[in-house]
């Protein structure tokens, strides 16, 4: 005598998985951490996955590197690393969330408040947004000026006690702690004040324009 064991097993497995996603609280994460533990370097050791939309990480040297602040400003800036460090760094501690579901809890960033850079450059009244350009030559994103002036929005130069590593966006990256990670432009080289926010790299490819973290 035979029974439809396979069919029942299939349906039970799918139902159990759907139940875990809908109601599983921390169980899927616990299971994943157990399974990933023996994988070592095959899974991200510091919790961060690496995202780049080009084939290589932009290189930089401290002597030649500059962060440009231009566009609708009274004073265009070309800031060296020492210029950024001279004003003191603000520490922002926040959970980092990627839209694809991974997070890193309690990341300590240190950097220059964007509002301070805007004040230094004296953004003109007609400027309503900022365009951020990565040194990878492909990635751009935008912030409304009101959001950019939030005190926790920084141009980060350090993560924890150390300078940013190349894969985390060295020498400078944008950190917007209340937005998903795709707003955090890495390898930042240029900030341009513009009249209206344009469409960022991932938004042009289907991402939601509202990047605010949903809990």
């Amino acid at each position: 005598m035979s029974t439809a064991v396979g069919r029942r097993l299939f349906l039970a497995g799918v139902a159990a998985g759907a139940g875990l996603v809908a109601l599983g609280n921390g169980l899927p994460a616990t299971l994943r951490s157990w399974v990933e533990a023996p994988l070592g370097e095959l899974s991200p050791s510091d919790g961060f996955h690496f995202y780049s939309v080009t084939g290589s990480i932009p290189s930089w040297d401290r002597a030649g590197w500059r962060l440009a602040v231009d566009g609708l400003v009274e004073r265009q800036l070309s800031l060296r690393m020492d210029d950024l460090l001279a004003g003191g760094l603000r520490q922002v501690t926040a959970d980092f969330h990627c839209v694809s579901g991974w997070s890193v809890r309690g990341v300590h960033w240190q950097g220059v408040p964007l509002a301070a850079l805007l004040d230094q450059a004296a953004a003109r009244p007609e400027a309503r947004a900022l365009r951020f350009e990565s040194a990878d030559g492909a990635y751009v994103d935008f912030l409304d000026l009101a959001v950019a002036r939030d005190p926790d929005v920084i141009v980060a130069l350090r993560i924890g006690p150390a300078p940013l590593s190349a894969e985390r966006g060295a020498p400078a990256r944008l950190v917007v702690p209340f937005y998903y990670g795709y707003k955090g432009v890495k390898w930042l080289r240029r900030i341009t004040a513009v009249e209206t926010a344009g469409t960022g790299y991932w938004e042009a490819r289907g991402y939601d324009s509202d990047a605010r973290i949903r809990n």
Partner: peptide, 27 residues
């Protein structure tokens, strides 16, 4: 099933997307 909230993340809570991703990796 778990790929759906990972792709259309804007329709779901962050917690649900995270659980979906955890199960996606396990699966």
């Amino acid at each position: 099933l778990t790929g759906v909230p990972m792709y259309w993340w804007g329709w779901f809570s962050g917690h649900l997307v995270a659980r979906a991703r955890d199960l996606h990796v396990l699966a």
